[in-house]
Amino acid sequence: MSDKNDDDAPPSSPTAGSASTENAGTDGKSPTSVDSPSVSPAPGATASTSSKLKSNSLKVDILLKPAGDAPIMKKKKWTVDRTKKISWVSDFIKKYIKSEASESLFLYVNQAFAPSPDTDIGSIFDCFGSDGKLVLHYCRTQAWG
C-alpha cells in the first residue's frame, strides 16, 4: 500500500511499475519533467504565451473513486495529460482493476453526469475540477441517470 505516500506527495509518480502504469502517459516522470512528448503547445502560440504556461499546466490531477461494486484502486490519484480522453481513462482503469476490455465501465463527474468518451480531460478539469484536482467516479453499471 502506498496510500500515505500518494496523498501527501504531489501526484504523478506511480509506485509499482506495472504494465498498466506505464500506459498512464505521464506517470513515471517526476512532476517537474516538462518535456512531455505527447503534448505540444497549440500551433501559433507565441513565445510569450508558452512561457506563461507553467510546467505542469499540460497535465492535471485526477482522483479515481469507485462506485457500486467496482473494485477500489490502490492508487487513486493520477496525473494525466490534459489532451487525454475520457475513453482513455476508462481503458486505463479497466486495465488497472483487471476488468475485461469488453466489459462496460461508466465514468461520472460530480456523481451526476457521464461525459462522452471523446471529451478531453482538460476541459472537464477546467469546468469541474476543484482544489486542484478532478474527481471521477467509476462503476460497472450506470449509476447516475
Binding site: 463527474v109 460530480n110 451526476a112 453526469f113 457521464a114 461525459p115 462522452s116 469546468c127 469541474f128 450506470q142 441517470g145
Partner: peptide, 22 residues
C-alpha cells in the same frame, strides 16, 4: 437518449449546480 440527458445534466451542473435537474 442517455447521451442527451447526460449533457442536459452537465449543463445544469454549470447553470444551477445541478439543483434544477436534481
Amino acid at each position: 437518449q442517455s447521451h442527451f440527458i447526460s449533457v442536459v445534466k452537465e449543463a445544469d451542473a454549470l447553470k444551477h449546480r445541478g439543483q434544477v435537474i436534481n
